[in-house]
Design a protein around this nucleic acid. Structure first.
Length: 254
DNA sequence: ATGGCAACTCCAAGTTGA
């Protein structure tokens, strides 16, 4: 079984790439972030033609998340518990014995920004939600764009980024807090090449120079981690014309 | 030292991302 995550930075623009990636990689579930589509415009017919069910929650211009899957999901949840939030950043569903959570963590903009405060609050709410889901379902996976580089090895220039948004200590602490609820960063289950990243800025030829960050993650509950046989980032779509700035990441489960 | 790209939007200059 293969489960994957990809921040597509506009599903409207990236649809052909997503369809092609589904055909080539045949994931059981693909989590998408930054679809940037209102629900009435979601291209579920094109995705169905590729053999996939769609479950989604979106809004105009910003955010938006979706689950594409070979089997239909059940028990769908489209928001974190708590007060209504216009920002559509979370969707979860059950596939067989697996609970899959797709998250688009706020960027935070800058450590002095109100958006940074919102990010930390959002992560705290995610933490509580994860505990609930863990208690309710046995096998849980949290996939998505976390907008956090957990360690210095996840940053092309750790000194330049030290204390900056995506790398600040409170964010890294929040990431470790998620792991403390009983999850493993699947990346860390395997020997990894140095300078393994999942996002590269569009500017300054960052991809060609591999000036990237590892900010897209797949966290697995312990039972699932025991079944995990591979972690991969697929850099091929990042090399295409009009790429997303993020690459897809996937894990294989026995 | 700064900004450098891309996508979005009442279509065009401002916002957002990371």
């Amino acid at each position: 079984m293969k489960i994957a995550t990809w921040n597509v930075n506009s599903l409207k623009v990236r649809l052909p790439q997503v369809i092609n990636w589904l055909n080539l990689n045949q994931p059981d579930v693909l989590c998408l972030q930054e679809t940037k589509l209102q629900d009435e415009f979601f291209p579920m017919d094109d995705i169905a033609q590729a053999g996939y069910h769609s479950t989604f929650i979106g809004q105009k211009t910003y955010n938006g998340v979706a689950l594409l899957s070979k089997e239909a999901g059940s028990d769908v949840c489209t928001a974190l518990p708590g007060p209504d939030d216009v920002q559509k950043r979370l969707i979860a569903a059950t596939y067989g014995d697996l609970r899959i959570i797709c998250a688009y963590v706020p960027n935070g903009e800058h450590v002095d920004s109100e958006k940074y405060t919102y990010k930390l609050e959002w992560l705290s709410r995610l933490h509580h939600f994860l505990q609930q889901e863990q208690a309710r379902y046995g096998q849980v996976a949290l996939l998505g764009d976390f907008n956090i580089a957990p360690e210095d090895r996840d940053v092309y220039d750790p000194e330049a980024w030290r204390g900056q948004v995506l790398c600040s200590e409170p964010e890294r602490q929040a990431f470790r807090g998620l792991l403390d609820t009983g999850f493993v960063d699947s990346f860390s289950l395997f020997e990894q090449p140095e300078k393994t990243y999942t996002w590269w800025d569009y500017r300054m030829m960052a991809f060609r120079r591999n000036r990237g960050l590892r900010i897209d993650h797949i966290l697995l509950s312990r039972e699932m981690a025991d079944r995990c046989t591979a972690w991969q980032v697929d850099k091929t779509p990042r090399k295409l014309e009009r790429p997303s700035d993020h690459a897809p990441v996937w894990v294989e489960l026995a």
